[in-house]
Each structure stands twice: as C-alpha cells, then as structure tokens.
C-alpha cells in the first residue's frame, strides 16, 4: 500500500446467485463507502472468474446474529423428537430440491 490509509469504510456482506432461481449464497465481504461501490467491489472480488447472474450486498451491521451462548437452547438437535422429522411419507419421484 502506498501510504497509510485510514480505511473506515463500512463492511458489506456479499451474496452471489450463480443462476436464476438458485439461492443467493454468502460469498464473503468487502469494504465500500456506499451500496453502489459495494456492488462494484463485490463484482470484482467475487465474480471475476466464474459466472454469476445476481449479487446482493448487505451492510454487515444490519445482520443480527445468534450468540454462541445460545448454542444449547437454540440448536439442540431434535433427533430424539421424532415428531419433528416428517419422514413418514414418500416423496414422489421427479420432485427435486427436497
């Protein structure tokens, strides 16, 4: 880097959609002064080698995350709660993405 840069640009989370209809998946993040520049930076950092058809950028501060201390009560696996697993019926052949 040329000189010390006071980089206080906010961080944006980047979501890339690889083809129409597919979910936007989290790819990483970028620094940018505003939403338009965040899109441009995301385009350059995360889509330059592969195909993409849509990008979302979201200010990182707008994301509400669960807390690590919630891990037990939040994510206790329901393996012993058989009624939570709707596996008692057959999925017809030809139905995809289930």
């Amino acid at each position: 880097m040329e000189t010390t840069v006071n980089n206080d640009w906010p961080v944006w989370e980047v979501f890339v959609q690889l083809k129409s209809g597919a979910p936007h998946e989290h790819a990483g993040n970028v620094h940018a002064p505003d939403a338009e520049m965040a899109l441009q930076n995301a385009r350059d950092v995360y889509t330059r080698r592969g195909k993409a058809c849509s990008l979302w950028v979201v200010p990182s501060v707008e994301i509400t995350a669960s807390s690590p201390v919630d891990q037990g009560p939040f994510f206790d696996p329901g393996n012993d709660k058989v009624y939570r697993h709707p596996q008692f019926y057959k999925v017809p052949r030809g139905v995809k993405n289930v």
Binding site: M1, E2, A32, Q40, N41, R48
Partner: peptide, 11 residues
C-alpha cells in the same frame, strides 16, 4: 499491489 484498498487493487 499499490491500490488504495484491496478491493480497488483487484478492480
């Protein structure tokens, strides 16, 4: 390698 920020360097 001399861009003002990493993202712009790549751009």
């Amino acid at each position: 390698g001399h861009g003002p920020v990493l993202e712009e360097d790549i751009a």
